Computed example of a mutant assay.
Amino acid sequence: MSLDTTPHNAAQELVRNLVANDPIQGWDQAWKVGATPWDAGDVQPPLRDLLHCGVLHLPPAGRALIPGCGKGYDAILIATATGLETTAVDISETALKQANDLLNASQLPSSVVVQFENKDFFSLGQSEKEKFDLVFDHTFFVAISPERRKEWGQVMSRLVKPGGYLITLIFPIDPPQDYGPPWFVRPEHYLEALGEGWEKIVDKVPEISLPTHKDREHLVVWKKL
């Protein structure tokens, strides 16, 4: 099979090689060289629409988490739209620097709280302080090895408070492949990883997607029982 060497796919191939060589520092190196095909350069329209449609019933002084936050577009959106104290984590220090630069340039009011932290998602949820009313996963689930998906589900179950929400914007939904990242994904893979204890309250193809995401993503919102 010949390799598609268009710029987008060339970047994906570079990311795969970097991460295969070093699963931790490879991501930071990808940010350093600008090989970030997952970075859409803006907030995700399905998330924006969800936060404004009234489906989520969030506490006035709650907390949100975004794992694998990258440059932080969606973290800033969540904090601004919901008023939740928002923590966004990534293992790439380079990505977090860019996220903080974006945050500073946004000139948000002091009432909007966003913190970017250099942490490993799989180390979270060990204390009551690490409990959240809302968690948003977009291009994080597909970035981890499929062998760790069950562990992902266990960590999510620790992190989300009873009555809290896990928003999964599933992308890219592409033909099956046995290599990654991004790893092959379908909506049912999230259910397999999460197990029992969750209620699905939204399950749909978004009405509005970024042009490169159209017909390649699916929105599922889970409520922790």
Rank of each mutant, 00 (worst) to 15 (best):
P45L: 14
G34R: 05
G68F: 03
T82S: 11
H57G: 00
Y73H: 15
V89M: 03
L50M: 08
D39I: 06
A99S: 04
Q107G: 00
Q107P: 00
N21R: 14
N104T: 14
L50D: 08
T94M: 01
S110M: 12
S110Q: 14
R48C: 05
A81K: 12
E93L: 12
P37E: 10
D49L: 13
T36A: 03
L47P: 03
A81Y: 04
A95N: 02
V43R: 04
Q98C: 01
D90V: 02
A35E: 10
I66Q: 10
L77P: 00
I24H: 10
D39R: 03
A105D: 15
H57R: 13
A35T: 07
G26F: 08
S106T: 11
K32I: 08
P37S: 10
G54S: 06
E93S: 12
D90L: 02
W38K: 08
D39F: 08
I76V: 15
D22V: 10
Y73A: 13
P67N: 06
D74S: 04
L96I: 10
G83N: 09
I78C: 07
A99H: 02
G83E: 12
G70Y: 01
N100F: 00
H57A: 12
P37G: 09
S92R: 02
P23C: 11
D42L: 09
P45F: 14
I76G: 04
E93I: 06
L84E: 08
P46S: 14
G62D: 11
G34P: 03
G34I: 09
A64C: 10
L65P: 06
G72Q: 06
G41S: 05
A20W: 07
L102A: 13
G34T: 09
E85T: 14
A81I: 07
H57C: 09
L96P: 02
A95C: 01
